[in-house]
């Protein structure tokens, strides 16, 4: 049935960890190893210990390691906004944020918005206004919208559109998203 010869390599251990034994750091500049390092992130108010490489994005750390899949990967290049999270209260794209650089900062993801099962007003408004279809851009839209309202950029529909333009919705829910943000901002 499957007449194939498999020439795989030996299965390597899932992850190698190195301590501070990597070569030749510059003086007075402690170097984080290119190998995986242990870090602790503050995510949604709780410490999240992870082992990541310096190159690992916050997005991949959340999704591939922490199992926090609410933050979405759409383009991995900062061009779509699906991975938007809050870092120290500011909305950023987690795909272009290195996880190791996010240490010591307060990270909020979509999983941290609802309190005790009660939806954040922006989440509730998205449901009521049908501000999504496939739902894949939705966590990023909502994280962006929450920040937008706090920034004071919900003054008019035109202002909301301008300040939401970093979040692409391919299903085209834009008018409903704007309506949801308008509602949530007025409620707040």
């Amino acid at each position: 049935m499957l007449g194939a010869t498999v020439t795989g390599l030996a299965l390597a251990p899932q992850r190698s960890r190195a301590d501070d034994t990597s070569p030749a750091p510059a003086p007075a500049a402690p170097v984080r190893s290119a190998e995986a390092v242990d870090i602790v992130l503050q995510v949604n108010g709780s410490p999240l210990p992870l082992t990541v490489e310096p190159r690992t994005s916050l997005l991949d750390a959340l999704r591939e390691q922490a199992g926090l899949n609410g933050t979405k990967k759409g383009c991995d290049r900062g061009s779509c906004g699906a991975c938007t999270v809050h870092v120290d209260g500011r909305r950023v794209v987690s795909c272009l944020t290195l996880a190791v650089r996010a240490q010591g900062k307060a990270i909020t993801t979509i999983e941290g918005l609802a309190v005790n099962g009660t939806l954040h007003p922006v989440q509730a408004a998205f449901v009521a206004q049908d501000g999504f279809q496939c739902g894949y851009c939705t966590p990023g839209q909502i994280m962006s919208a929450v920040a937008l309202i706090e920034e004071g950029h919900a003054g008019s529909d035109a202002e909301i559109r301008s300040w939401m333009s970093g979040n692409i919705c391919r299903c085209g829910a834009y008018p409903n998203i704007v309506a949801a943000i308008r509602d949530a901002a007025q409620e707040g």
Binding site: L68, N69, T71, K73, A128, T138
Partner: peptide
């Protein structure tokens, strides 16, 4: 009526293909 899967989608708990552990 509101989407029956709306709650899952706005809380990030809707599970897409790449997200099964």
């Amino acid at each position: 009526i509101d989407r029956v899967d709306g709650h899952l989608k706005v809380t990030g708990r809707a599970t897409y293909a790449a997200e099964f552990a």
